[in-house]
């Protein structure tokens, strides 16, 4: 099966500012993909290009196998970051309007709207104007408008921002439900623990460039071998000078070591067993949060160094 989304060296500039810089990535169908990156990293610009709302200056892309999303708009659900509703329209009229715009027949719309309102607990609000709804309710309506036409690909820009914990859980459930029914979901977020819980795959960008992408397992394992936690009885001081240690914290009862890419954690373990009676040895799995902070931090540092230093 072909990929849901493919980006090939996609670049977008606004004047002299490069918002997205030669971004290449493939995202398979049927997965939940987290799109991560600090503010201003180029997430929204990338998403807008995927949705044919703006167009790349260079590079090419494929959305559901087509070069432009505009050709497959009725098979995509898109929830933009900048979103709102017609204030004076009722919930029912609003959803009908969006449904019709997505090419749905009127007969199918009626029951579908009822069904979806039921699933988010807003059945009683169908005849109310959208301005009488709370912000959280409005967001649910916007989400319903996004998935009303049962799209194959759902793209959500910051869908969780502004939601309370209960609604956040509800939305997570709805997204998992989409995945279970074989849909592809791409969403951008700042909440890393959530991405970790929810996503099969992540894409992390910074300053318009890709820092890392892959399945969560894959990304983690690439960084997993770098952090060791040891405890027990013995003189852990000697471990400070093990080859490849870049950061350490040693106490009487144990040590916390961070290794560079060349170091072998097994060698450190063997050494530790010689000098101490271990009660715990753990190759800690870094959280997405840590990976994010480290990668973005390194990239930030590289940006302020002269080019020769940065590429060394």
């Amino acid at each position: 099966m072909d990929d849901a989304l493919v980006l090939n060296e996609v670049t977008k500039r606004f004047g002299t500012f490069t918002a997205v810089d030669r971004l290449s990535v493939r995202m398979p169908r049927g997965e939940i993909i987290g799109f991560l990156g600090p503010n201003g990293a180029g997430k929204t610009t990338t998403i807008r290009m995927l949705m044919s709302i703006t167009y790349p200056d260079e590079g090419s892309m494929e959305v559901l196998g087509r070069p432009r999303a505009i050709d497959v708009k009725d098979r995509i659900g898109y929830l933009p970051e900048e979103r709102g509703l017609y204030r004076k329209m009722t919930v029912d009229h609003t959803l009908r309007y969006f449904g019709q715009l997505k090419g749905m027949p009127a007969a199918a719309l009626k029951s579908r709207i009822g069904e979806l309102l039921e699933s988010v607990g807003l059945s009683n609000w169908r005849r109310h104007t959208t301005e009488s709804l709370s912000k959280g309710m409005q967001q649910k309506i916007q989400f319903i408008a996004t998935i009303l036409h049962d799209p194959e690909l759902v793209v959500l820009d910051e869908p969780f921002s502004g939601l309370d914990p209960l609604n956040r859980d509800l939305l997570e459930t709805l997204l998992r439900d989409l995945k279970r029914r074989g849909k592809t979901v791409l969403f951008s977020t700042h909440q890393l623990e959530q991405a970790e819980r929810l996503c099969d795959r992540i894409l992390l960008i910074h300053r318009g460039r890709k820092l890392v992408d892959g399945t969560i397992e894959d990304v983690r394992s690439r960084f997993a071998a770098r952090k060791l936690v040891l405890s027990g009885e013995g003189d852990f001081e000697q471990l400070r000078r093990s080859p490849g240690v870049v950061d350490e914290h040693v106490t009487v009862g144990g040590a916390w070591l961070e290794l560079d890419a060349t170091a072998d954690p097994q060698a450190v373990l063997r050494r530790a067993m010689e000098i101490a009676k271990l009660t715990q040895f753990e190759i800690a799995r870094p959280t997405l949060q840590e990976i994010f902070v480290r990668l973005v931090g390194q990239d930030e540092a590289a940006a302020v160094l002269p080019p020769t230093e940065a590429t060394r």
Partner: peptide
């Protein structure tokens, strides 16, 4: 202007050009 200020417009652009 209303569609812009109420931020409906991008939801609309999700459905049509």
């Amino acid at each position: 202007l209303e569609e812009k200020s109420s931020r409906v417009v991008e939801l609309l652009l999700a459905a049509l050009s």
